[in-house]
């Protein structure tokens, strides 16, 4: 059980990963938070896209993988911006310094559809 837990943590810690700053230096990758709110803005910028939302406790920002990555897995800005003004649920890793900032791992839209970053091994062969 302990080994399974450790493996799970390692899996969790293995993403999000990028060519940018260390994830563990910035985000709590051991805990996945969930937040519902209204999607207000999507910045399609390097080195990370940024999704803005308004939740009960105010404004939040979530960065995620680089635009070049999203492009290569077939996701465009429109896949996010289509929901601006609508309620979405974001799952991710919060900034360790307590800011209302995080790394987006999953977004679920009002119609139940979702986009989620998953470990590379989950990809179909």
């Amino acid at each position: 059980m302990k080994r399974a837990l450790l493996a799970g943590l390692l899996l969790l810690a293995s993403f999000p990963a990028s060519a940018h700053h260390s994830t563990t230096a910035e985000f709590d990758v051991t805990h996945r938070m969930t937040l519902a709110g209204t999607l207000t803005k999507v910045d399609w910028v390097n080195p990370h896209i940024v999704v803005f939302m308004t939740a009960k406790d105010g404004a939040w920002k979530f960065e995620s993988n680089p635009p070049a990555w999203f492009r290569r897995v077939g996701v465009s800005r429109a896949d996010f911006s289509k929901a601006i003004g609508q309620t979405v649920t974001v799952e991710g890793n919060r900034a360790k310094d307590g800011s209302q900032y995080g790394y987006l791992v999953k977004i679920t839209y009002a119609d139940g559809s979702s986009l989620e970053l998953v470990p590379p091994g989950a990809a179909a062969p």
């Binding site: 999203f70 559809s113 979702s114 470990p119 989950a122």
Partner: peptide
């Protein structure tokens, strides 16, 4: 680039 994959549902 990040090694992660995208899952669409």
């Amino acid at each position: 680039l990040p090694p992660t994959a995208i899952k669409r549902e």
